[in-house]
Computed example of a mutant assay.
Amino acid sequence: MPLLHKIAGVVIVCAVVLGLTLPGDRKGRDRADAAKRAGAESAAAPTAQAAKAGGTPAPGATGASGSAAPSVSASAPIPAAAPGAVAVKADELGQVPVLMYHRIMKKPELSLDRSTKELYDELTGLAKDGYYPITAAEFFGGRVGVPAGKHPVVLTFDDSTPGHFGLDAQGNPAPDTAVAIIEQVARENPGFRPVATFYLNKEMFGMDDAQAATGLRWLQQHGFEIGNHTVTHPSLSGLSEKGVHKEIGDMEDRIVRLTGAHTTTFAYPFGAVPKKKAWAEKEDGRYSFQGAFLAGWRPSLSPFDDDFDRWAVDRVRSEGKIKENDCKKYCSTAWLEYLDKNPDERYTSDGDPNTITFPKAAEDRLAKEYRARARVY
């Protein structure tokens, strides 16, 4: 294993020892500790670029979800849930798996790589288990338009490597790329929505600017989201304010030049947060995000949970239950198995994007700005 991967593994294991909780333990989710959780990304992973699907607010626009209803008195009774929501045991304060992928290859070479078969198998399993993909922008914006009884999942791909996306001579997704596999799984499993979010560095999928402009437009037109992941994939924790702005802003400038649209969401390289999170959140006139992802190691809280911190959202590395980096407990196979065995901890949709349904026992976890949309049973 390359030295940098070993170092990343040591950092991750230390993070687990110092702060990561076992599945189902909410006490370890203190927001003040979120930025300390080490990322699963490898410094040796190829860098790439960032972009976003249309409809993104311009820099300087609010980063709030825009979907929260006017506040109501905390003492006002919450209306009863619709019968259909009760029937599917809706719980929209449950956990949401945000899966993190790096290189997709026929034959993996590095510890963070996933094979095309592994990706296909994992996505097929998600479809069979009732998961419904949404984009990162939809997740941060509280626009969780998921059919009743199904569970949102956010598919994120870091570093915009060639295995993520490309177009063949006919203008279709190149075979064995992540996009082609996502679309194949959707065809084979009606109701599985073919969307994902790609976090880009400067070498966008190995394309030149002309190819990238065409490719990014294709992604936008087909419902995929593109997000900012910096120009050169540095650890932002060691950069000055100027350095952070340059890495993110220069990437954003290139994306806007190629697509005409700003990105909505951001993923910290290595999961490393700058000295001041505000530096990564916004720079007037250049970028303004709705939220940012870390790099591991557990499902995210619901965006409607009072403890949800949109600037330090957890993700889960896609991996089997292997010993390395404690994946037996903290990678995708382990977590998805856990949520399947503990459905009361998983986000289950009520089917109505205008309401937020949950068991009455969870009422104290609801963020007050969403109380007007709440329904209980």
Rank of each mutant, 00 (worst) to 15 (best):
R114E: 04
R114N: 15
S115T: 11
S115N: 04
S115M: 04
T116E: 13
T116S: 13
K117A: 15
L119C: 03
L119P: 09
Y120S: 10
D121V: 10
D121N: 11
E122T: 15
E122H: 10
E122G: 00
L123A: 05
T124L: 02
T124V: 03
T124M: 02
G125E: 10
G125M: 08
L126N: 02
L126C: 05
K128E: 10
K128C: 00
D129R: 15
D129V: 00
G130N: 05
Y131D: 03
Y132N: 02
P133M: 07
P133G: 08
P133I: 05
I134F: 01
T135G: 07
T135F: 01
A136D: 01
A136N: 00
A137D: 15
A137L: 02
E138R: 03
F139N: 10
F139L: 14
F140S: 02
F140W: 12
F140N: 02
G141Y: 08
G142S: 10
V144L: 15
V144F: 01
V144W: 03
V144I: 15
G145Y: 00
G145S: 14
V146H: 07
V146E: 06
P147E: 10
P147K: 07
A148D: 04
A148R: 08
G149Y: 03
G149F: 08
G149P: 01
K150I: 06
P152I: 11
P152T: 13
P152A: 11
P152V: 13
V153R: 07
V153S: 06
V153P: 06
L155D: 06
L155G: 11
T156F: 10
T156E: 03
T156K: 07
F157Q: 09
F157S: 07
D158S: 08
D159C: 12
D159L: 14
S160G: 14
P162H: 11
P162M: 10
G163S: 11
H164Y: 07
H164I: 09
F165V: 13
F165T: 05
G166C: 08
G166N: 12
G166F: 05
L167A: 09
D168K: 12
D168Y: 10
A169C: 06
A169W: 07
A169R: 14
Q170K: 15
Q170V: 02
G171M: 06
N172L: 13
